[in-house]
């Protein structure tokens, strides 16, 4: 599970530095890790089915439209936020 945080933070770092194509590649290379985490939180009803569907749609749409703000918004304020609530933020 720790891997998903590492992957998301790496993608966010690339977006922050406007390295969009790198961010995209890292995301695509590690999509399975993120997908597994989404399945995990869906199965454990951490979020509702509708919310899970919205998350996935936002991820897909962000890649289709090269909308890296949308990707950042979804990764940081949705997925990473849930992760931190579940496993606590590092201090």
């Amino acid at each position: 599970m720790e891997n998903v945080k590492v992957v998301i933070e790496e993608v966010l770092e690339h977006i922050k530095n406007s390295r969009f194509s790198v961010a995209r590649q890292v995301f695509l290379d590690n999509y399975k890790i993120i997908e597994n985490f989404l399945l995990f939180i869906g199965e454990n009803q951490v979020i509702t089915g509708d919310e899970l569907r919205d998350l996935s749609e936002n991820l897909v749409a962000s890649l289709e439209n090269n909308d890296y703000y949308r990707l950042e918004d979804t990764l940081r304020y949705a997925i990473l936020s849930v992760y931190n609530q579940l496993f606590g933020e590092e201090t």
Binding site: D54, A61, D67, Y69, R70, D73, A78
Partner: peptide
């Protein structure tokens, strides 16, 4: 489509 304000 481009998001102008965050959804989350």
């Amino acid at each position: 489509e481009y998001l102008l304000q965050g959804v989350y």
